[in-house]
Nucleic acid binder design. Sequence first.
DNA 1: AATGCGGGGAG
DNA 2: CTCCCAGCATT
Length: 358
Amino acid sequence: MKAQEAGDPSHYKILSAVEIERLRKDLRVWYDSSRRDLPWRRTHDPYAIWISEIMLQQTRVAAVIPYYERFLERFPDFHALANTHDSELLSYWAGLGYYYRARNLQRAAQQMRDAGSFPSTYGDIRRLPGIGEYTAAAIASIAFNLPHAVVDGNVFRVLSRIFNDPTNIASVNARKHFSAIADKLLDREQPGVFNQAVMELGATLCLPKNPQCLLCPVSSICRARRSGRENDLPVKITAQKNVREERVLFWVESGGKVLVWQRPPESRLMPGFWELPEREHLPGISIHRKLGSFRHGITFHNYRFEIVEATVPDELGRCRWIHIEELGTIPMSTVLKKASRMVAQSRTRHLKLDGEVG
DNA sequence: AATGCGGGGAG
DNA sequence: CTCCCAGCATT
């Protein structure tokens, strides 16, 4: 399907008033009976809903659930969150990605502590660090039942299909375009339920590939379905290309300790996380043997890391020795976790072989 | 208006 | 492999 600049959103009028009313009802009824039982759907606490929305930014439901439960247990309210230390906060976030979310979360919690309460208007919610248009609308509608329509990846998909709308969702204007349409459709009696129903539809039936139209509660009014175009929508055109990269990391071990370095706390990239050294960190390094390799993707980078056993002279630069048993107590990057897991496994294999021989 | 930011699961 | 996920902040 040919892409189109975001333009006149008034084609929501493709649907008659009667059809819009039926759409709202069908979505509501379907959502009531089909919605997944997710932890953050069992609460009305704005704080808990806020935490869930931040964790869910660009992150799948399945990945969030265990983090959400651990986090809420340790930080049950904004006072607990405001008063914790960076390192403990990070350890609860480690592995979830987009680490600035954790820092913004704490800054926002401190603002709430100073203000004495959780903000309760769209504008006040939107002004918190880490909260953009989507998250502000989500919290306002779900926690406070305020009439703000959300626009996320699910909404792009569902609306572009319902209206057979070829607007390029990667274009700058796409958000405004679909936001105007969503606002017209929004069920103002139950904005929170409506928003969640649209997103739930996108997450469970109106999928990126092979949408389950036979199960869809609104397939009868869906214009893409009517013209057999559901697999051609949404239109997304980007210029981003993937980059392949090979890197060597050193495993330097001595007396039960391994050499690691910490990213500076003010670094923009994974601040405070510990990593294995590379050659630039250890100029005088002596390489012994290859221990293994693994792949790791970060946004559009596709890395292949090779782990090499090595020894070093006295000069350690930014690196520090840490006991292997204590690795679990520091914020480990996922690359460091993968590497140490790999080294441990290769070691058990060797022990086994030695045992069979002896 | 474009780019960087993690990590994992699905196809 | 590629794509995409309940996006945001910065430039």
